[in-house]
Simulated scan of single mutants.
Amino acid sequence: MLQRIQSVYMFLVVVTNGVLPFWLYLWTDNLGEAVYAQDDMVYSGLFLASAVMAFVTIFLFKNRKRQFVLNRLNLILNLFLLGFFVYRSLILPGEANVSEKGIGMLLPIVSIVFLVLANKAIKKDEDLVKSVDRLR
């Protein structure tokens, strides 16, 4: 059942973490050059791991509990990624040649919002199935 709303949310996480970090810059360095996710292996690895986990989770629609758990793990992964970005933005120099933060640093926040919405929809489906089983 790929037409469910949680599948749409997880697909948006795949796009947000699998495509956008490689198009949008994360920050600019002191020389004014844009730094993308592919320039750092840690960031690109975390973004791609999150995207792959969301893609795999889309096809686990028959096992909602496993889908819910994998979404929570993906949420924790995005929180780590957000923590790395916060740390990186705190150690940027504050001199006259200030490094600029890019829009790509906000991508984990967008992914977290979509994952929370997907988990709410999965929980709603699970509650619906439990209520129908109670009537049998």
Rank of each mutant, 00 (worst) to 15 (best):
F61K: 00
I58G: 01
L75Y: 13
D39E: 11
L115T: 07
T16R: 03
M10W: 13
K62T: 09
N30Q: 15
P108K: 09
N97D: 11
D133T: 05
L2P: 03
P93F: 01
N74P: 05
V52D: 00
S99G: 12
V52N: 00
N78A: 11
K120G: 07
L79H: 01
S7T: 11
F59K: 03
L48C: 07
K62L: 09
L115Y: 04
L26I: 15
P21R: 11
N78V: 03
Y43S: 08
W27F: 14
V113N: 05
K101R: 13
D29A: 08
P21G: 10
V15W: 02
L135I: 11
V35M: 09
F47R: 06
P108C: 08
I109C: 11
F61T: 03
M105L: 15
N74D: 15
G45E: 01
V86L: 15
Y25L: 10
M105V: 09
N74K: 01
F11M: 15
F80N: 01
F55E: 01
W23C: 07
N78D: 14
L81W: 08
F80W: 10
G104I: 02
E95H: 03
M105K: 10
D127P: 01
N97S: 11
N30V: 14
V132S: 11
L73C: 13
G104C: 06
G83N: 04
G102H: 06
Y9D: 09
M1F: 12
V15L: 13
I91Q: 14
I122H: 09
L12W: 02
T16Y: 05
E100N: 12
L117W: 09
A96P: 08
R134M: 14
V35G: 01
Y87I: 05
T57V: 05
R4P: 05
V69G: 00
N63E: 12
D133Y: 06
I109V: 15
K62R: 13
F68N: 08
V52I: 14
L135F: 10
A54I: 07
L82C: 10
A121M: 10
L26T: 09
D127I: 08
S111D: 02
S7A: 12
F84E: 11
A54P: 02
I112S: 15
I112V: 14
A121G: 06
P93E: 15
L77N: 07
Q38D: 10
Y36T: 06
G102E: 10
Y36A: 07
E100C: 04
F61E: 04
D40Q: 10
Q67F: 01
M10A: 08
E126L: 15
V86A: 12
G83W: 01
L81R: 02
N78I: 04
T16W: 04
Y43N: 09
S89L: 08
V42P: 00
L79A: 11
T16L: 10
F114N: 10
A118N: 09
V35P: 00
Y25W: 12
L20K: 04
L24S: 05
A118Y: 05
L20A: 09
F47Q: 07
K130D: 13
Y87Q: 05
L12E: 03
L79S: 14
M41Q: 11
I112W: 06
N30C: 07
